[in-house]
Design a protein around this nucleic acid. Structure first.
Length: 643
DNA sequence: GCACCTCGAGTTCA
DNA sequence: CTCGAGGTGC
């Protein structure tokens, strides 16, 4: 077997500490290629475009062994009567990068971009420890470009998401997105903390090196100091190729990083050249893509869940089965119509898969395995928790429990109040809320603020002094959350986080919101009749008024804070973002605008002050033009927000 | 009244 | 991520 050893991370770690010490003592000795220069560079302004010397092509896909065979047929036809051997590599699910070295020193790291022009992410690339800043060659070529995959290990990915979850940031869907996102950080310090890794698998434009095979190239890359995969295989027959694919399809879970397929390349560089390329992809390589992992399992039961709004949602209880890395035992069926459309019955054998990598989904029932014993499930007309009538309004898709004091709704409502987007009360999770309700310590959200430490300790079975103290403090600290979060936490129907922001902008205090009229609400952009009605209804309910009153007495912040400092730069201005911004994600830009007192709206109207147009702006751009709304480009926007 | 875009609400697992 | 539904503009 021709497996090749991988360079271990430890080899890069050891000399670091020593070096830092030396350089701190003698700053004049710091060289541009010093590993200490990997981090600490100032945040970049944005990313400059880099033109690739030779196009970074993508690979053709094969989604089955048939398609893979067809590819091999084409290769053989293209090289009649020649002996052909191949190299099989794991296709790591990361992000493609091109690294250029001049006279042995790393000068540029770039993303693939559209293949012709990528972005200069050199500072971020330098934080990847397995990428040498200097080649380990006696005599380096004047110009060397290598290509590879920058990725994040499964373990590190979970680590990152755990932290993001703590700080309330949106989670990365998969390691690939995490890697891509981390490489697009303006502050290399953040990239460094993400601990990316890299595997190099080929050469780009390079001066004066005469290789015969791809295998030789890989050996050279290893010698030059790059991390090259140890799982690469040099093969000669089709069977070996298929075996390699099959083996890794089964064993992909055992790898420290995610792979989404196998790359098969013609080994001889002369043969590669002779096969050539289409405008999109080389004819001498292909990516065999693993099918999304699907498993079959049995629907043991279908149960209903009662949500915060009283919605009855059917959930399939499944015979536990391992799919794409985790064990699946439940899957939502969304609603009655969806259940009927897919015709899923209790006792059915079904195909399950992960939608988007995390959330299990029932794809389809296997009707051929039916015995006739399967039962069609109907959502009950009574709430399974409180027994009240459950009604599905005409034209709507969900059945709802009509009892506003239904224990299930109350429970979910309190959890919602404590949730990250609302009051963010750490330590107030399902188990604690359950005990507090059961032991009659609270009835509603406002009661939380009248609990003493002792009560918390007494009423929550598993609590010790420390946890009681922590929760007590967490509850107290939530009193001065911004008004918009309080509004969101109230759980008014149709009032989510965004509409809460909008309402808080227009009504500086809860009294003003309470006393407004139907027209006063609908006049506001983004507030239509449905939202208006539900807000007005909320304040008509005696129960709700009592809770609001108690919240007031508890000292909850029920007015928009008026900033006493310097007037905010963007006070009262409304922005609409369109197109792709290069410096930050849209969400980030939105955060910045809001932080400076501005508003972000989703659609352009006469009220819009600025439309910020990024790359490929959408229809909002045209709308802004026709309405005569001021359109600014990213440059000017950055100047406007002063950074 | 319709198309399009957003937002809201519910959900899973480790 | 998913679906459903609200808001806006034609």
């Amino acid at each position: 077997m021709l497996d090749s050893p991988e360079i271990s991370d430890a080899e890069y770690d050891e000399p670091m500490r020593e070096l830092i010490a030396i350089e701190e003592a003698h700053p004049e000795l710091i060289t541009p290629d010093s590993p200490t220069q990997r981090v600490g560079a100032p945040p970049a302004e944005g990313f400059l475009p880099v033109r690739h010397r030779t196009k970074m092509m993508s690979l053709g896909d094969a989604f089955s062994f048939d398609e893979l065979s067809a590819f091999l047929d084409r290769v053989e036809r293209g090289l009649p009567n020649e002996k052909i051997d191949y190299v099989c590599e794991l296709k790591i699910d990361g992000t493609a990068t091109a690294l250029t070295y001049e006279n042995g020193l790393l000068v540029t790291g770039a993303t693939r971009g559209d293949g012709k022009v990528g972005e200069d992410i050199t500072l971020n690339i330098k934080t990847i420890r397995s990428i040498p800043l200097k080649l380990r060659l006696d005599k380096s070529p004047g110009f060397l470009e290598v290509r590879g995959e920058a990725y994040i290990s499964k373990k590190q990915f979970e680590e990152i998401n755990k932290e993001r979850s703590k700080s309330g940031e949106t989670l990365f869907a998969n390691p690939r997105n995490a890697a891509a996102g981390s490489l697009r950080q303006l502050d290399p310090g953040i990239t460094a903390r993400r601990e990316l890794d890299s595997i190099i698998y080929g050469l780009g434009f390079t001066s004066g090196e005469g290789f015969k095979t791809h295998w030789d190239v890989l050996q050279f890359l290893k010698k030059a100091g790059f991390k090259v995969s140890k799982f690469i295989r040099h093969v000669e027959t089709r069977d070996e190729i298929f075996n390699f694919c099959e083996k890794w399809q089964e064993e992909r879970d055992s790898l420290p990083y995610e792979i989404d397929g196998i790359v098969v390349k013609v080994n001889s560089l002369r043969q590669q050249e002779s096969l050539g390329a289409t405008s999109k992809a080389p004819r001498w390589a292909i990516a065999y893509k693993f099918p999304p992992e699907q498993k079959t399992t049995k629907v043991l039961d279908i149960v209903v869940n009662v949500g915060r709004t009283g919605a009855l949602t059917p959930v399939a209880v499944l015979e536990p089965v391992k799919v794409a890395g985790s064990t699946v035992s439940r899957a939502t069926l969304h609603n009655e119509d969806e259940m009927k459309r897919k015709d899923i019955r209790i006792g059915d054998w079904v195909v399950v898969q992960k939608a988007g990598d995390v959330i299990p989904e029932v794809v389809i029932p296997i009707s051929s395995r039916r015995t006739g014993e399967e039962k069609i499930y109907k959502i009950p007309n009574r709430c399974p928790v409180c027994g009240a009538e459950a009604v599905r309004p005409p034209g709507e898709a969900v059945k709802r429990c009509t009892n506003i004091s239904c224990p299930a709704q109350r429970f979910e409502h309190i959890l919602h109040w404590a949730s990250r987007g609302a009051m963010d009360i750490d330590g107030l999770g399902p188990a604690v809320v359950d005990e507090l309700l059961k032991n009659k310590a609270i009835e509603d959200i406002a009661d939380l603020y009248f609990l003493s430490k002792e009560e918390l300790l007494n009423k929550i079975g598993h609590f010790q002094e420390k946890s009681a103290e922590n929760l007590y403090n967490a509850i107290n600290n939530s009193k001065n959350r911004p008004f918009s979060r309080v509004l969101f936490g109230l759980g008014i129907r149709h009032v989510g986080s965004h509409i809460s922001d909008v309402l808080a902008q227009h009504f500086p205090s809860i009294e003003e919101l309470e006393n407004t009229s139907f027209d006063g609400l609908t006049a506001i952009n983004e507030i239509g009749p449905a939202v208006t009605e539900s807000v007005i209804k909320f304040f008509e309910q005696e129960r709700n008024l009592k809770v609001v009153d108690k919240l007031k007495r508890a000292g909850i912040n029920l007015r928009e804070m008026i900033e006493t400092g310097a007037p905010k730069k963007l006070g009262g201005l409304t922005f609409v973002l369109t197109g792709t911004l290069s410096r930050f994600a849209r969400e980030e830009a939105g955060e910045k605008i809001k932080a400076l007192g501005g508003r972000v709206s989703s659609s352009v109207s006469k009220k819009t002050d600025y439309v910020v147009a990024g790359e490929n702006p959408g229809s909002k751009f045209d709308k802004a033009k026709s309405l005569g709304v001021k359109i600014i480009e990213e440059e000017e926007f950055v100047r406007l927000i002063g950074g």
